[in-house]
Design a protein around this nucleic acid. Structure first.
Lengths: 193, 193
DNA sequence: TCGTTTATTGACTCGTCAATCAACAAAAGA
DNA sequence: TCTTTTGTTGATTGACGAGTCAATAAACGA
């Protein structure tokens, strides 16, 4: 049975299974056995490839973040002009992939993980920093670019949160609409206060 | 030692200890023993008063929600006019009490809890419903009241989130400023798109 | 061919923790 | 006084789960 070069395949399967299981259970209280089972292997093998459960969580987090980053980069590449780039970031952030129930559930639990695991906190910091700098870049000429970007970043996270708790299916288009609604108003309005 | 009428005192102590411990550990992975110890009693007594750990979590959540509700109600009572009432809700939401590190940590974990415990989900639903109806009431005359309220609610939650992850101390005043910044722009601007 | 590396698992260890229980202490009531 | 109610805990149970280990097997390299 044992074919060589299994490591990357097994790891990927475990990462996917981790995300699915976290989303299914709705918390980080998933056992390595559950994850391994879903990935079609024994828990011992999971421990063999990732040294620990925490390492598995971090790998899953890294994967989600990587996918998101790729999506944003792709959307940005196809947009020119600051305005179009802003909208591209929003659309990417609320794309169906990011709104898959398990992915959003994973994000939520990663936020919690970041409270206690420094590695997780660092990863989230990288994501937030990139998002912030992307947003600011689109708003650079304005004096209040930083404040607008911070608010918009928070709005994105908040809209995410709402979707997790909703009963029905997530509605990315609506989230984009709400965000654009505020952003447009803020961009047009005088820089208040 | 045993004085009578201990029940409410013990329960309150446990609820407070639960919030503190969740905030300290940064997750729901707190043992009943830890909580009981901080509350100055044995874990057996904790189980005696609340039947289970889950019941303790729900009681703590109810308490946080009650405090928040009282704060909003108090702020609303002292404000007249829709505009002042909107600002009152914002100020109450970002009051120092709600930005205490452990309280915000508790909120974050309650969001996670709501994913798997129906009772928790119901409680959060009540909170969100009240917040939404309060916000809408302040915006009633407008045709787009619902959309503005939804965005503002999400913005509040998102700003919360940012504070949890920050390293330094939480800054409620800044959050209020960012929220007002967007809200003012949105209220003044044409109802876009 | 034979040792080495990679893949894989079942069984096991060790710790932890929620929940229970038996027992004890003090107040209230009869 | 005696009994019932309330408060309180140490010890115990029972389950579960992360991580380890020994053993097996296939491929590879020399």
């Amino acid at each position: 049975m044992p074919k060589l070069g299994m490591e990357p395949i097994r790891k990927q399967a475990l990462v996917n299974a981790t995300i699915v299981e976290i989303g299914r259970v709705g918390s980080l209280d998933v056992t390595v056995s559950q994850i391994a089972k879903r990935a079609g292997m024994s828990s011992a093998l999971a421990h063999h490839y990732f040294g620990s459960k925490e390492e598995m969580f971090l790998a899953a987090m890294r994967h989600v973040l990587t996918l998101y980053g790729a999506e944003v980069r792709g959307a940005l590449a196809a947009a020119d002009g600051p305005d179009a780039r802003l909208r591209a970031i929003l659309r990417a952030s609320f794309s169906p992939m990011n709104f898959r129930r398990d992915v959003v559930g994973a994000w939520l639990n990663f936020w919690v993980l970041a409270q206690s695991v420094p590695g997780a906190k660092r990863l989230l910091g990288v994501y937030q920093g990139r998002l912030r700098s992307n947003l600011r870049a689109c708003l650079r000429p304005r004096a209040d670019a930083a404040q607008i970007a911070d608010g918009l970043g928070a709005l994105i996270d908040g809209l995410y949160l709402r979707e997790v708790l909703k009963d029905g299916p997530a509605d990315g288009a609506r989230a984009v609409a709400v965000a654009l609604d505020y952003l447009d108003a803020r961009l047009r309005g005088a820089n208040a206060s």
